[in-house]
Write a protein that binds this DNA or RNA. Sequence first.
DNA 1: CGGCGGTCCTGTCAGC
DNA 2: TGCTGACAGGACCGCC
Length: 280
Amino acid sequence: MPELPEVETTGRGIAAKLLNLRITKLEQHRRDLRFALPKNLASKLEGRKLVAVERRAKYLLLRLDDGYSLLLHLGMSGRMVIADADDGTRGKHDHVVFVFENGAVMRFNDARRFGMLDLVKTGEEHKHKLLAHIGPEPLDKAFTAKVLQERLAGRKTAIKLALLDQTVVAGIGNIYACEALYDAGINPNKEAGKVSADKLALLVPAIKKVLKAALKDGGSSLRDYVQTSGELGYFQTRFAVYDREGQPCPKCRAAKITCTGVLRFTQGGRSTFWCAAQQF
DNA sequence: CGGCGGTCCTGTCAGC
DNA sequence: TGCTGACAGGACCGCC
């Protein structure tokens, strides 16, 4: 589920509901997710107030009032489910449950357990092993075609795989890598270091565009999800190529071009969707 | 350092 | 209906 827009939306949902509230109780139902959870987590979190929520790449930082921050990653299947009142519902994969002073409950649910959770000293999170080598935020003004060109220089790997590399640029996952490359008209298999400056000048705005569009959509669909565990509006989102193998792509359809439709192949063990008539 | 493949896990869905 | 295999929005680690 979570790429940058979903993580950002989750963070906003947490802030909207739980900011400035104290954690009164922490339930920990596993000792580990992807990694071992911090020792004595409950005693470190109970009594603490949530004072801010920030995002870096696909990580969320929940700022606490004691100078520490909860660093968490949702992995592939992680989600935060918030309920205004605790009716006692606990799902099979609710690994960590936060109960707040007003009775609200936040459940960290992660079936595949690729997610993680750690405590870091606020202000020192950039030194954390997992954050130390993360690339620029794609929605920052400072993320320009020139910056991307520098970061891709000499890279022999495919451009699609380079976009998934969080040290090149932060927060992009499989869906938005496919969508951005389609939007920019770039063959996902093109050697990263050899993508022309002209193409990169299209790619950077394309990345920002698809992420912002998803953020806008996720903002309206995922907010409900975060609060209530209802159906995901997210899946109603219309992707141009992602998960649309065999279907005509929007550009070919608009131009009335008869093509093979959206193609799919595997890169780095993951599916890439693209249109050969539009990306080269 | 770059690139690649293996690996961690459960759930779901298509096909037989 | 089972059963099986493929695949899923991520990213670390070890090896070359």
